[in-house]
C-alpha cells in the first residue's frame, strides 16, 4: 500500500488488539500450531499467508475459539483480547464470538430471507428493542457490506438466491451487524470471481476504519493489496511477521522469500 510508510509511524503508538503468546494447537496427536506468538493491531488488516495445511486457518479459528467445536482439538498458550485471556475458564466462547466475528471461506447465508440473515445476530444478542431499530441496523449493516443497493428491494427473498459474491458480502454484513470488534475472514474470496473479489477487497479496506480485520488468504497478491501487516506460516510455525511491504519486498527469512517467489508452496 502507498500509505504504508505513514502507517508505520502510527503503529507504534497503537495498542495491540490481540496478543497471542506461545500458542500450541494439537489435533489428537498432530501438533498443528507450534509456538506461535503474534500481536495484531486495531484498525489494521492483518493477512495470514502460507501454503495449504500450514496452520493459518487453524490459528485464525483459535482467535474466536471456533476450534472448540472440534472434539479432538486442544489449544495451549495464551491469546489476549484487549488484555483478557480468551482461553480463561471464565470466558464463555459465545460471548467472545459476539466480539470477534467470523466470515468463512464458502459463503454460508442462512436459508432465510436477506433481512433475517442480518437481523439474526442482533436479535439473539438483544441489540434492539423494537422493529424500527432492527430495520436501521439491517440497513446500516447492508450498506457497510456494500450490498444494500443490490438487495434493498428484495429483503424478504432468500439469501441463498443471491450470487456467490453477493452472498459473501451478505455474510460480511451479517458479521458486522452484531457490531464485533475484530473480524476474522477465512479465505473470503476463494469461491469468488475476480469482480466479486475486487468488491470484497474494497469492502475489507473500508472496514479497517472501524475494526481489526484478520484475513487468511492463498493469494499473495490479495495479501499485498489489502493488508498492512502480513504473517507467513509454514508447517505450523510462524516464520515471519511484519509490515506487508517489507515481507513482500525484503523478506528476512529465506523460507518466506522462497514462498513469495513461488519456489515452495
Amino acid at each position: 500500500m502507498y500509505d504504508a510508510p505513514n502507517l508505520e509511524k502510527t503503529v507504534d503508538q497503537k495498542e495491540f488488539k490481540i496478543t497471542a503468546d506461545n500458542v500450541q494447537v494439537f489435533y489428537g496427536d498432530t501438533h498443528a500450531i507450534k509456538d506461535v506468538s503474534v500481536q495484531i493491531e486495531d484498525n489494521t488488516v492483518t493477512a495470514f499467508i502460507g501454503p495449504s495445511g500450514c496452520g493459518k486457518s487453524t490459528f485464525l479459528r483459535c482467535l474466536n475459539r471456533m476450534n472448540d467445536t472440534i472434539d479432538i482439538c486442544r489449544v495451549e498458550g495464551n491469546i489476549l483480547l484487549d488484555g483478557e485471556n480468551i482461553y480463561d475458564k471464565k470466558v464463555d466462547p459465545v460471548q467472545l464470538r459476539a466480539k470477534v466475528g467470523m466470515v468463512f471461506q464458502k459463503p454460508n447465508p442462512f436459508p432465510k430471507s436477506i433481512y433475517d440473515n442480518i437481523a439474526y445476530g442482533p436479535r439473539i444478542h438483544g441489540l434492539t428493542r423494537n422493529k424500527a431499530d432492527l430495520d436501521i441496523i439491517v440497513e446500516k449493516s447492508l450498506r457497510r457490506g456494500a450490498i444494500w443497493d443490490e438487495v434493498k428491494d428484495r429483503l424478504d427473498q432468500p439469501g441463498t438466491g443471491l450470487s456467490g459474491g453477493q452472498q459473501q458480502r451478505l455474510c460480511i454484513a451479517r458479521a458486522i451487524a452484531t457490531e464485533p470488534e475484530v473480524l476474522l475472514m477465512d479465505e473470503p474470496c476463494s469461491a469468488l470471481d475476480p469482480i466479486a473479489t475486487a468488491q470484497v477487497e474494497e469492502l475489507i479496506d473500508e472496514l479497517r476504519q472501524d475494526y481489526s480485520v484478520v484475513i487468511v488468504t492463498h493469494s499473495m497478491q490479495q495479501a499485498a493489496r489489502v493488508s498492512q501487516k502480513t504473517a507467513f506460516f509454514h508447517l505450523g510455525n510462524l516464520v515471519e511477521y511484519g509490515e506487508t511491504s517489507q515481507i513482500f519486498t525484503n523478506p528476512i527469512d529465506p523460507r518466506t522469500e522462497s514462498y513469495i517467489t513461488g519456489r515452495i508452496g
Binding site: 460471548q95 459476539a98 468463512f104 447465508p109 445476530g121
Partner: peptide, 8 residues
C-alpha cells in the same frame, strides 16, 4: 459454523 460465528 455461520450461526456459531456470529455468536449464537
Amino acid at each position: 459454523d455461520a450461526a456459531l460465528g456470529i455468536g449464537a
